[in-house]
């Protein structure tokens, strides 16, 4: 999901910045309010911030295929803290990665925020919320949120790449080629993210249900 520097035309890069900054502004405002009103949520915010940073930077190998890719971590953060707060955490992680870790770029920061931070958080949280409304168990709902957030992140990245690099081909064909190339590596990682997200949410609900009462998860 890390689109590097220079691949997006400047007008498209700027265009992705506009909604990304709107989401980031709303996320930072929500985060500030949360820390003021619920100081007890600070450790969970710190934990999720560090977690999203390290997980989305970590290249995870896929045995058999011989390729590596990154999980997202933002669906879990969104389920535990709410999607807007997760957007803020994801955006900060992506900025650090672009500045110091040669992953992503400054010009592509807006596009990367929209795919991993906004897409991963809102789709992950949305699927979790919907599954809970449909009566799914906490672990299943959280796991499917993690899976969907991961896949959608790469679907959005594929669209951004297709829009920028389709050349003579149609955008749809380029999107399909990009998404189809991501998926063999990403599906195993999304399944791993399903189990991890499910496990952590269930663990938090069992060990510290008090943390979740004032937050976004209702066990």
């Amino acid at each position: 999901m890390h689109i590097p520097e220079g691949l997006l035309p400047i007008d498209q890069a700027a265009g992705w910045y506009v909604p990304a900054m709107a989401f980031l502004g709303a996320g930072l405002a929500k985060l500030k309010r949360r820390l003021k009103e619920q100081p007890s949520s600070r450790p969970l915010v710190g934990l999720m911030g560090a977690f999203v940073f390290v997980v989305s930077l970590m290249p995870v190998p896929v045995p058999g295929l011989g390729t590596v890719s990154h999980p997202c971590g933002t669906p879990l953060a969104a389920i535990l803290l709410g999607p807007f707060t997760a957007v803020a955490l994801g955006a900060v992680a992506l900025l650090l990665q672009a500045l110091f870790f040669a992953h992503g770029g400054i010009s592509s920061w807006g596009a990367n925020i929209l795919s991993m931070a906004v897409g991963g958080s809102f789709v992950g949280y949305g699927v979790y919320w919907l599954m809970r409304r449909l009566g799914a168990g906490l672990g299943l709902a959280a796991g499917l949120g993690g899976l969907a957030g991961d896949i959608v992140t790469y679907a959005i990245t594929s669209f951004q790449l297709a829009l920028a690099l389709h050349g003579q081909e149609s955008i749809a064909a380029t999107w399909l080629a990009a998404f189809g190339s991501f998926m063999p590596t990403q599906i195993p990682l999304a399944i791993a993210e399903l189990f991890f997200t499910s496990g952590v949410v269930v663990f938090v609900a069992k060990r510290r249900a008090d943390l979740l009462g004032g937050l976004e998860v209702q066990p």
Binding site: H2, G66, T67, S69, H103, S181, F182, T185
Partner: peptide
């Protein structure tokens, strides 16, 4: 697995 372990950021993008 015998591979160069290239990332999708390199191969796909």
């Amino acid at each position: 697995t015998s591979s160069e372990w290239l990332g999708t950021d390199d191969t796909v993008v």
